[in-house]
């Protein structure tokens, strides 16, 4: 186990200065996520245009460095992807954070994969996996117009 691997500079930086934090102006989909065990709350907003491309995405919430950094990196990577690509990326991320050694998704560029792999240290800390995944589950809920609050279980 290695704390340096978990708390890499990029995680700390995104955790401290999250990108796309706030409520995007013209969202047409949104969903809330809640993690009752640790009290994290997140609200994801996105604008899906006529071509099913995520034109804009943002989030509101507060939580630990891991959850904030994960949401921040997610919004950065998802922006500009279409619905199908976005869902593939989410699946790939969730697989990587739980067990897969690397990312396989063809819709991620090499530098995007490198950025996302900064979160891979989390898998050594099973208690913290839910911190990293909440915003991703919430994003899928928003895409699917789910009325229910997203959970990580």
């Amino acid at each position: 186990m290695n704390l340096k691997e978990l708390y890499q500079e990029i995680i700390l930086e995104h955790g401290k200065n999250p990108r796309n934090l706030g409520k995007t102006h013209e969202f047409n989909k949104d969903a809330k996520g809640h993690n009752p065990l640790c009290g994290d709350n997140v609200h994801v907003y996105l604008k899906l245009n006529g071509q099913k491309i995520v034109e804009d995405i943002s989030f509101e919430g507060s939580g630990c460095a891991i959850s904030m950094a994960s949401a921040s990196i997610m919004t950065d990577l998802i922006k500009g992807k279409n619905e199908h690509e976005a869902k593939e990326i989410v699946e790939d991320f969730l697989g990587m954070i739980k067990e897969n050694p690397e990312l396989k998704c063809e819709y991620l560029k090499e530098d995007e994969k490198t950025k996302l792999m900064c979160l891979s240290g989390v898998k050594q800390y099973p208690m913290r996996v839910k911190c990293a995944t909440l915003s991703w589950h919430t994003f899928v809920s928003a895409l699917d117009n789910s009325e229910e609050t997203a959970k990580t279980e």
């Binding site: 704390l3 978990l6 640790c38 939580g63 460095a65």
Partner: peptide, 20 residues
């Protein structure tokens, strides 16, 4: 530092606390 980050770091140092 969020309490859950504190708990993880302390745990690695062998100090068990609760956060939440």
């Amino acid at each position: 530092v969020h309490p859950h980050d504190i708990a993880t770091i302390l745990d690695e140092d062998g100090v068990a606390i609760r956060a939440g």
